[in-house]
Amino acid sequence: MSLKRTIPMTTVSGFGVSAVFILTILNILMQNMPSNIYRAGDELLKLNATDGVANSVTTVVVYFRGFDTLGEIAVLFIASLGIGLMLTNNNLNNISQENSNFMLQIGAKLLSPVIFIFGLYIMIYGHLSVGGGFQGGVIIASGILLLLISSNGFHISHKFVEIFETLAGVSYVVIGLIGLIILDSFLGNFLPYDISKMGLLLSGGIIPIIYIIVGIKVGSEMSVIVDNMLKRNIDD
């Protein structure tokens, strides 16, 4: 075993994570607690009707508890980084090249587009029905897992996935900062939202956009985790 292992994330993503932490701490220091919310559940449900989002779990996850979602994404990133550090194998020559089952190959070709479309649907319609970014991202990662175990020639390029991941993480913070500049609160809903349009796809302001960003981030991290678990060389 060689001790020399490359960290599979670029320094850009490292800067992104440190920026997330610094901005979160600054925001917690700068924000005031609202003093008019005494009971959590019913008051939040009444407030929720002003945001134009049908699924109130989405509102709680993305809007009222947006900081916690940011922290949770950071935890997922650190877990993915740790798995990549432990299981990254630079020697790709010894990976077994035998073909998978014929039925599995044909079935994966038929099923994988359906799985991807289902994951995208769940991710995009998270503010109108059951679902959201976490579930949709994991469904897309399971589709990638199906492609990885079925076909020999399919490899996900880690550079591409890192670009997705970095863009998603940075845009989350950027949207939050725009809300801070315009509306004086982190993740403020600065896009126009109309209660009478509740139920349409383009409703709810920034809430569906943020859930789609969360979905991209979770999907890319899960794909990297699954790829690292599969590509591990046994015989070194």
Binding site: V138, M222, V226
Partner: peptide, 10 residues
């Protein structure tokens, strides 16, 4: 999705 799908794969 997570508790049945990905966890058992891992």
């Amino acid at each position: 999705v997570i508790g049945i799908g990905i966890s058992s794969v891992i």
